[in-house]
Design a protein around this nucleic acid. Structure first.
Lengths: 130, 130
DNA sequence: ATAACTGTTATATTTATAATATAACAGTTA
DNA sequence: TAACTGTTATATTATAAATATAACAGTTAT
């Protein structure tokens, strides 16, 4: 699993890492049941602190993307991953709203907006198949 | 212009204020050419610091949503507001990507995702007409 | 059993950002 | 002259991110 962290970004490292792991799962680079490095090994590989990786793992565990076995270590959820819950929909709506408000204000139509979203969806699908 | 700030939110106040002003412009509650309170007056009304309002105004000015005349004070851009620039599209894409990755990972189809976006668009349109 | 590993927890420190507090400057307006 | 405008500067407080060390409890392989 190849990770690239931007230390100059205003996005916290633990969130960058979380996103890229989710992307790995989404595109199939990380298969269900596949192991992830230990917090110490991953931290060393990425040149960051153990606690930063641990923070990321805790978030992913909380969302149901990964499981933490006392024996097997950290593993991509081998069963069904997290689904579209009510809680998630609320969060998604909260995050989308301000973005759409600005898009609307700039004169972007919902068709244009949806086109951009669809394109990102297709890119993910292609990565998953390719 | 009615503003509600959530001091418990993890979203910074200056961003909450920025979003709500843009929403006001989007929904027509703030008309082109309309005046906004001075930094001091607005800060007093909202119970926050002068500099927090100033930070918001500077961001809105930078994006072209408002103008700052030495005489007239702060005014909603009376001409055409900011449009869909290349820079904006890049930013939008960067913000949308992680959200769509998670949606995709949770098994949400692009049709479902677009439906949610469309609904938010329609809500804004209704507010603007109503 | 000893050693090396696992996630987890605790504590402390450094760094960066958000927000506030005062103060002042230059220009405008009544 | 007095009261306002945005702007700038400086300092302080509060919070979150990231790091540094250390330890604990359980597992695994030698």
């Amino acid at each position: 699993m190849l990770i690239h962290l931007d230390f100059q970004s205003d996005i916290p490292i633990y969130l960058q890492l979380k996103m890229q792991i989710i992307e790995g799962i989404a595109t199939g680079k990380l298969k269900p049941g596949e192991s992830l490095p230990s917090v110490r090994q991953f931290a060393e590989d990425l040149g960051i602190n153990l606690h930063t990786v641990n923070k990321t793992y805790n978030l992913l565990k909380q969302d149901g993307f990964i499981l933490v076995h006392r024996q097997k270590g950290v593993v991509v959820n081998p069963d069904e991953g997290p689904k579209v819950t009510e809680e998630y929909l609320t969060q998604l709506h909260t995050e989308l709203r301000p973005m759409i408000i600005e898009a609307f204000c700039r004169g972007m139509s919902k068709e244009e907006f949806n086109k951009i979203c669809s394109q990102i969806f297709l890119e993910l699908k292609e990565k998953g198949e390719g």
